[in-house]
Design a protein around this nucleic acid. Structure first.
Length: 598
DNA sequence: TTAGGGTTAG
């Protein structure tokens, strides 16, 4: 009759181990691989216990590297190195699994030593070992060593994993162009290779390049999977390319790729960030199961679109569904409250999350609270939040207060915070611009000049406004003040006509944020060339009647463009959706979804 | 045994 295994008591101390070990010996099970490995796993965690492990192995009837190999992956580098020494001293020869287990977690110095050792032991022509070594050099940020190893290895030893490892590793180091060169030279690719290149471009912010590779993949007739689909969708999100996003979504549905949680979240996020919350809601509602991230994404999406009550309603649905929120949920819920001016509710949620879910407020939550009070004009309360924080406020928290001072024209508090923010973030041109705007609003032109001088001295240049509009599925980019477009003259003429017509309805150019101290007409003219006005003018020229215009801007919308766009939506009977750096503005019939609160 | 995908305030 076979002996039954002892109850697997937890092993936390050496005496517990001895007890367990003697029990195994009594039952004749000490050499059983699963039990022996359990004993060794405990012993290997502390190099001081390795002599015990050595005795154990010495008494083992069939000591094999397989007993130790699985342990390497979960050990800290020093313990792993000590265990390897033990292995070599037994002597127990490393096998084909030893180095692939050891290398991934190895810091650079250890990886180099292992490299030398595996050369000596003749493992350099083993593909998996070579792949693990390539990965170790790349995670250790030594693309030079990885490339040399890669180039000097004979091509018969390199498999698709070797190539993909190099592509992915170079991407992670930000060397996307190098990665692309390797990718283009691949003798064979699989879906992981395609996705490594596509997601590599996405992480580098090179969304159009990502889509180009994705197109290339489809043109070759390669069928995708959920990973590739998610990367392509994220590329569309980044590029604000709604038409392409819709097309990728259709492709997913047609090719029968399963909409798992991650892919679904990417699609929901794409629709949100491309300005189509309703489509995002449709996808969201159609999902049989929703992960926490999916809920978070949808709640946040509604919030930044100004659909604050819907966002809070959705949060209640989430609670009803028994899904426990996390700290990102709290950020999104507070954002919804802040954008709707719901101060009391926001306070309530702040407490509710701590009391009901044990979510301790973090830096970003204090930032949200500052924003909540600040937007509502309660600058004292906002300052109190900062004073009462258990940690030093970071630049974002101070930035929120600064932004609030700008909205409410509080020059006294705002100027002081502004200087602090500038000193903490001296290379961010946006901080200087906000400070200059604040001072310009108060007519303090000398101080505006000082801000500009400071920017010059520090070589900080104002980021140029840039707006993108998609017409007929093609993205057109406009930069503030300049046009490089075949329809240049028509667009200018349209912009001028546009402003003429909305003026007739009561629009007055708001030059308070033009911080050159020049004649009023020049200021008005400079407003006309703001990138979003040019983009909208182009949209009016080219889009189909009643088609919603969707503009994405790199900076925040200025006060004047915001006002003008409200009038344009009224006079031209157009819905216009503008995504700016912070949020979405839905202009319709002369009003904006942000309720002039941004 | 090696390689790949989603959410976060201003």
């Amino acid at each position: 009759m076979a002996a039954t295994a002892p109850t697997p008591i937890p092993i936390t101390t050496i005496s517990e181990l001895r007890q367990y070990h003697s029990q195994l010996v009594r039952l004749g099970l000490a050499s059983h691989p699963a039990h022996a490995r359990r004993l060794l796993a405990f012993l290997a965690r502390d190099p001081a216990r390795l002599p015990y492990a050595a005795r154990l192995l010495a008494h083992h009837p069939d000591p094999r590297p397989a007993l130790l190999n699985p342990l390497f992956a979960s050990l800290p580098p020093r313990a792993a190195a000590a265990l390897l020494s033990l292995m070599l001293s037994m002597p127990l020869q490393p096998d084909h699994f030893t180095f692939p287990r050891l290398l991934p977690a190895a810091p650079l110095a250890l990886a180099a030593q292992l490299h030398a050792l595996l050369l000596k032991l003749n493992f350099h022509s083993h593909t998996q070992t070579l792949n693990a070594l390539l990965a170790a050099y790349l995670t250790g940020a030594r693309p030079d060593l990885a490339s040399r190893l890669f180039r000097t290895s004979s091509s018969s030893m390199l498999d698709v994993v070797s190539w993909t490892t190099v592509v992915g590793g170079l991407c992670r180091l930000g060397l996307v162009d190098d990665a692309r060169e390797v990718f283009d030279g691949m003798p064979e690719r699989n879906l992981v290779s395609w996705n490594s290149m596509i997601s590599g471009y996405v992480k580098a912010g090179r969304y159009l390049d990502a889509l180009e590779v994705f197109d290339q993949m489809r043109a070759l007739g390669v069928e995708g999977n959920g990973y590739v689909a998610a990367s392509a969708v994220v590329a569309c999100t980044g590029a604000s390319a709604l038409a392409r996003g819709r097309e990728v979504h259709r492709w997913v549905e047609q090719s029968g790729i399963e909409m798992d949680n991650k892919l679904a979240t990417a699609v929901v996020d794409m629709y949100c960030k491309c300005g189509c919350v309703d489509e995002a809601c449709n996808v969201f509602d159609s999902l049989p199961t929703k992960g926490l991230t999916t809920w978070n994404c949808m709640i946040g999406g509604l919030a930044v679109h100004g659909r604050c009550n819907d966002a809070l309603e959705l949060f209640r649905r989430m609670e009803m569904a028994g899904v426990a929120p996390d700290d990102i949920t709290l950020v999104n819920v507070l954002t919804a409250c802040a954008h709707a001016g719901m101060v009391t509710e926001g306070r309530g949620y702040f407490r509710h999350f701590a009391e009901s879910y044990g979510i301790e407020p973090k830096m970003e939550h204090y930032g949200c609270m500052v924003d909540l009070f600040g937007r509502a004009g309660q600058l004292d309360e906002a300052s109190k939040v900062i004073d009462g924080m258990p940690m030093e406020p970071d630049i974002a928290v101070l930035g929120a207060l600064f932004g609030a001072c700008k909205i409410h024209g509080n020059v006294d508090l705002g100027e002081a915070i502004g200087w602090r923010v500038i000193e903490l973030d001296p290379h961010n041109s946006g901080r200087y611009v906000l400070q200059a705007n604040l001072l310009a609003g108060a007519g303090r032109w000398d101080d505006v000049t000082k801000v500009r001088q400071l920017m010059d001295e520090r070589n900080v240049s104002k980021e140029a406004g840039c707006s993108v509009i998609e017409v007929d599925g093609e993205a057109c980019e406009f930069r503030c003040g300049s046009l490089c477009h075949p329809q240049e003259e028509d667009i200018y003429a349209m912009a001028i006509d546009m402003v003429r017509r909305i003026r007739a309805e009561g629009y007055v150019p708001d030059t308070s944020e033009v911080f050159h101290d020049v004649a009023e007409e020049d200021k008005e003219e400079s407003l006309l060339y703001h990138s979003e006005k040019l983009a909208i003018a182009f949209g009016l020229l080219r889009a189909r009647p009643r088609e919603t215009l969707r503009v994405t801007k790199n900076l925040r919308v200025c006060k004047d463009c915001h006002e003008a766009t409200k009038y344009i939506s009224l006079v031209f009977e157009r819905e216009i959706v503008v995504r700016d750096r912070n949020r979405f503005h839905h202009f319709k019939d002369g009003t904006c979804s942000c309720k002039d609160y941004w």
